[in-house]
């Protein structure tokens, strides 16, 4: 049922509000405000925005962990219910998987790597026993880990290795779409580059579609051809990566771009003069 050339994700008019605070302090936060986007099959869309702009909420609604107040989600040509039943969530999980923002918490610290991956294999593909064992080794190999890592507990792995396991677990469901929520944010730069390369490789090999959430614009350039910019729950700009990053139209994107430290970046004083010049 490949919809080559079509969109594997279509989102329209998504809204989500959270009530925060209690009593008189109670107010609502608009985490998603009329969000519409579509992602072509096999492509990678980056979602950028500052902290609290609603990126994680978008991901959670998309995979069915959160219910939107309004709007429609069409996944692989099928509209998905906003309050999914368990069976529906299970079938949706075969289409879309997510790698979570929090690398330490994304694996159960009392279960081995193998158990984590086997659980997904058993849930979606009824793979058990020796077959599962073989699949676990294959998946670990794909994310650059060795069979010996299967017996490890998460606490015995580095942050980068834990994130690789989380990716392997998501791949175990053989999804078409992978939502990566700040998948490399917690990793140091060299490990970050490794995992980004790995992700690019996996996408090519498996013809996956990525929704790549990040607040790091330098990462965006490396991974995706298209980008949407979110601010306070709204999409304020969208387009091809080079267009948006090199010729941003929305003032917020300009601000986001200019506030990101990058090579050659120098701290500036508020009067616009260069700090280094003032000091000398």
């Amino acid at each position: 049922m490949s919809t080559t050339g079509g969109n594997v994700i279509e989102i329209s008019g998504l809204r989500k509000e959270f009530a925060v605070g209690r009593g008189r302090r109670r107010r609502t936060v608009r985490a998603l405000d009329d969000v519409s986007l579509s992602v072509a099959d096999g492509s990678c869309l980056a979602v950028v925005g500052e902290s609290g702009s609603g990126k994680t909420t978008l991901a959670r609604v998309l995979v069915g962990l959160e219910r939107a107040d309004a709007g429609d989600v069409v996944l692989a040509g099928r509209p998905v219910a906003q309050r999914p039943r368990r069976a529906e969530r299970r079938s949706r999980a075969r289409d879309i998987q997510m790698v979570f923002q929090d690398p330490n918490g994304s694996l159960n610290r009392r279960r081995t790597v193998e158990a984590a991956i086997r659980e997904v294999l058993a849930a979606h593909h009824r793979v058990t026993g020796a077959d599962a064992r073989r699949r676990v080794d294959e998946l670990l190999d794909q994310v650059g880990l060795r069979p010996a890592h299967a017996r490890a507990l998460p606490g015995e792995l580095s942050g980068g290795q834990q994130q690789r396991v989380a990716i392997a677990r998501a791949l175990a469901a053989e999804p078409r779409v992978l939502v990566l929520d700040e998948a490399v944010a917690a990793l140091d730069v060299s490990v970050q580059a490794q995992v980004l390369n790995l992700l690019a490789e996996i996408r090519r090999a498996r013809r996956l579609t990525y929704l790549f959430i990040t607040h790091d614009l330098s990462v965006v350039r490396q991974v995706s051809e298209e980008v949407v910019v979110m601010r306070q729950g709204r999409i304020v700009e969208r387009g091809s990566t080079s267009e948006v990053l090199d010729h941003p139209r929305h003032p917020y994107t300009v601000l986001l771009r200019d506030s990101a430290p990058r090579p050659g970046w120098r701290p500036r004083l508020s009067n616009g003069s260069d700090l280094a010049e003032v000091e000398t």
Binding site: A93, F100, Q101, D102, L107, E119, V120, A123
Partner: peptide
């Protein structure tokens, strides 16, 4: 609230 529980919930486990 930890991600590992969310990941398990995502798979449609009860």
């Amino acid at each position: 609230r930890l991600a590992y529980v969310q990941a398990a919930e995502l798979q449609g486990l009860s």
